[in-house]
Structures are given as C-alpha cells and as structure tokens.
Amino acid sequence: MSTAPTSTQKPSDDAATAARRPAFFNRQRLASLVVWIAFACYVIPLAIAQPQFISFYNIISILMLISVYALIGFGEGVVVLSGGIDLSVGSIVGLAGVVAAVILTGHSGVGWCLVAIAGGVLAGLLIGAFNGIAVALLNIPSFVATLGTLSIALGVGYVFSAGQQISIDNDPFLNISINAYFGIPIPIYIMFIVFLLLWLVLSKTRFGRYIYAVGGNIQAAFVAGLPIRRVLISAFVISGGLSGLAGVLLAAQITAGIASTGSGYELTAIAAPVIGGISLAGGRGSIAGALFGVILLGTIDNGLTILNVSPFYQHIIRGFIIILAVFLDTIASRRKLV
C-alpha cells in the first residue's frame, strides 16, 4: 500500500502555486471522484442486470452487513489519521461479544441488556486504552503494540468463554438487530450517528485538528505545544470503544458470543479507510473515506453473492479491488513513490 506519498509534493523553489485560489474542480476533488466513478461503473450495470440489487430490502441488507465493519473502520480511520495502526480491532469484536454474552447468561430483561452493552463497549475501551498507553507512554510502535493486543484480546475472549460459543437468549438484546424504525434496523442508525459525530469531531473541532496534526508531523505538533500523548491515547480509545460496540452489535446479530468471530476483520478495517483515501502515513484524508470504503467493499461482496460467485473467488476479487481502488486514487492525485 502506498505509504510514501506524503512528502512527494516537496517544497521546492519553483512553487508558483502560492497565490492560486483553490478551484472547484482541483485535483484533490477529481481524485476523490475517480473511485466513485469506478464504483458507479460496477453498480449501474449490475442494477440493470439484477434489479433486486437496488431493492430497498437488498440495500438494507447491505447496510446491515457493513454496519459492523463500518464501526471498526471508523475507529481504524481515526488511528490511521493520527499516524498509527490498530491491528487489535478484530479481536476486540470477538471479546466484546463474549463479554456481553457472559453477562447475559441466565439474565433477562432490559436492565441486563444495557449492562451487557456497556460491558462489551467497556472491554473495547480498556483494550484501546492499553494500546494507547503502550504507544504514547511506552513508545512502542503501534504495529507491534496492537499486534500484541490482537493476541491478548483473542486469548482473553477464549478464557472468558472457555473456548465455547455462548448463545444469547436475552430478548431486548437480540431485538437490537431485529427492531426497525421506518424499516431501518437499529445498527444502521448507530452507524450513521457515529459517522456524523466523528465527522463533526474530526473536521470541526480542535481535537480533530490535533489528530491530523499529530499524524501529519508529530515533531511539529510537539513544538506547537499540543498534548500529543493524550491525542494518541484518545485515538486508540476511540478505536477500541467502537470495536467493542461493533462486537456487541455482531453478537446480537449472530445471537452468540464467540471469541474468534472478529478474526480477520482488521484487514477490512484497514482496507476501508485506505480505499477511501486516508493515507496510511497519517494526517491526510477524511472519515467519509472510511464510510465510502466499507460501502464499496460491502456492495461488492453483496453483488458477487447475487451473481452467484463462489466465496473463494470473492476473496480474490476483493483483494484486487482494494489494490485497484488505491491505484486509481494514486493516478488521479498524481502521487508517486518519490
């Protein structure tokens, strides 16, 4: 993946760009459009050939499918913007589901449902805080720290569940994924609310600006007096918390807590923001990109299923699409290796 582009537009002595106003159709905009156009090239023919693809029911099922991925993708997006990476998100999904399931064992009623939700999210927040402390206070590179917690969270999940699948029969909890308002299930609302909140925070608030600054040039952020450690810890806590929430929603969907359910999700979580134009080197991109990335991946999976493509091939196609999407973005924004 392209981690090098950040410093390609080097300040050089021939920067006559200084006085130019940002045009409406500048390269940046164009670049973000290219992937959308490619996306449309996939969706429109498919919708004509298979009208069920754009039925309300199918769109809802796509959104349902991606709501879990979206939450962890958002969290990952925040961490990547801050210049790090979080590999532990998949394990947190499993752990949070197990925690919720354990809490619900033998307990019914709305009260316990809320406790279970809180417990799952809290588990994610704790792992996230652990990641943040390891990275920001102990100076462990995030790749290594979260590779460690990937294993730790998975192990803790196995211990809590004794390696078993813990089924859930608390009705209010299961209703989270069944109840719908205006035909739209709750997880989809949650996804969009979280998206809106994060978008506001990242683009409109000081904290968001700090995330970009720390990811863009941590030395400069330090000299400017920003609380860089707090910013980094917050990014991991957000990611952990959202992964915990995703785990709770997933447990409600599959009516069980299974420690290994989220294994491998980190790949999608990282791919989504990158497809959406968030730079893996940090400091560049928008959380909307992460949303776009999961929508793209979810739609493609769904489309391939409708077209009856075997799941084995789906993996291969998915991998190529990730590379292709980033490649298109690279061409459009004229990024180069050096």
Binding site: T6, S7, Y212, G216, N217, A220, A221, V223, G283
Partner: peptide, 8 residues
C-alpha cells in the same frame, strides 16, 4: 528545522 504540518 521546519516545524509545520505539511497536510494542513
């Protein structure tokens, strides 16, 4: 050395 954030 320059202490600015390039993407901002």
């Amino acid at each position: 050395e320059l202490s600015l954030v390039p993407h901002l």
